[in-house]
């Protein structure tokens, strides 16, 4: 059975990628399951989707915990433990990441034993891979790496899954699918189907007796205030608003009030500051700043600068 997991952010087409791949497998005569998985989080938050494909009926269900292939549409997710990108990645798991870095860098960084491949950020024409085509590219890459789905099946799946969109959009997606499929040709078939069940002894599930607990503790109630700040929604952000203090006129009541999440505070000198642990990167502050004193920095670069500067 092929077990393939896509990781991305809400709004990046990860669900579409899983559906394109699922349909492509289906068109190639496989039994298939595909499904997205998202919780309460919204656009920008880490989500994943998965595909199972087999020649025999599939009886497994639910989240894939032992993937044969993991595809990451947004490399910033890898460092986010809550995104669980590396969950179940084993010695045979193939790993594809949409990244400008070398495969060896990723292999070393993550200590990966299986095949590692990157989907270059340059895109098919060297002008950068647009976010809206990453899904189709990842689906096509997965098809080629599995080695049992033809490019024709992928292109047909793109057409089926994007039906209703403008012809030009479909054509561009197919173009990106062809590009990604071609890039993977040297590694074609590196993802092998895994057995239906893991070999060896069956570990016990570790059940416990759940004891009665007083309603004071066992009701779904939180007796502490403002605990939401423990959730670092800054991880949703792909672009970071940075206040350029040289240009800032200190009218914190504009950005501070308009920021939907209330993450802009004021320091003692009356200058606004941004709580990056929780800023979701909506950029309302940037668009509303009367003096255009806020810049947009890609999160990748901002984090890079931070680690270069030795900051946390």
């Amino acid at each position: 059975m092929y077990r393939i997991r896509f990781h991305g952010r809400g709004g990046q087409g990860v669900k579409t990628a899983s559906r394109i791949l699922g349909t492509a497998f289906f068109l190639s005569g496989f039994e298939v399951q595909d499904a997205p998985r998202y919780g309460a989080e919204r656009r920008g938050a880490p989500i994943f989707a998965y595909v199972r494909a087999d020649r025999r009926p599939i009886h497994e269900r639910g989240v894939i915990r032992d993937p044969g292939l993991v595809l990451v549409a947004d490399e910033t997710l890898v460092a986010i433990s809550a995104a669980s990108v590396l969950e179940g990645v084993g010695a045979r798991t193939a790993f594809l990441v949409h990244s400008g870095e070398e495969t060896q860098t990723w292999r070393d960084r993550l200590d990966l034993a299986g095949p590692v491949v990157t989907l270059p950020v340059a895109g098919p024409h060297g002008e950068g891979l647009e976010a809206r085509y990453v899904g189709a590219a990842c689906a096509a890459a997965a098809a080629c790496l599995a080695g049992v789905v033809s490019l024709g099946a992928v292109e047909e799946a793109v057409r089926e899954e994007l039906e209703g969109l403008a012809d030009e959009v479909i054509a561009r997606n197919r173009e990106h699918a062809r590009w990604a499929y071609g890039l993977m040709e040297p590694l074609r078939g590196c993802v092998e189907p895994d057995p239906a069940h893991p070999a060896g002894p069956i570990p016990p599930p570790g059940w416990v007796e759940l004891p009665f607990e007083d309603a004071r503790v066992s009701a779904p109630a939180t007796h502490a205030g403002v605990t939401s700040t423990l959730v670092k929604t800054g991880l949703w952000r792909t672009v970071r608003p940075v206040i350029e203090h040289a240009r800032c006129r200190g009218c914190w009541w504009v950005c501070g009030s308009l920021c939907p999440d209330g993450v802009i505070g004021v320091d003692e000198a009356g200058r606004p500051w941004i709580d990056y642990d929780h800023c979701k990167g909506c950029m309302v502050c940037l668009s509303q700043c009367p003096n255009r004193a806020i810049d947009a920095i890609p999160e990748r670069d901002a984090r890079g600068a931070e680690s270069a500067g030795g900051e946390k």
Binding site: R42, T229, W253, P260, D261
Partner: peptide, 16 residues
């Protein structure tokens, strides 16, 4: 200037 509602909620980025 200071805000009382906790950050870190699951509302979409840019939620009006």
């Amino acid at each position: 200037a200071a805000h009382l509602l906790g950050t870190g909620t699951a509302m979409c980025a840019g939620c009006g």
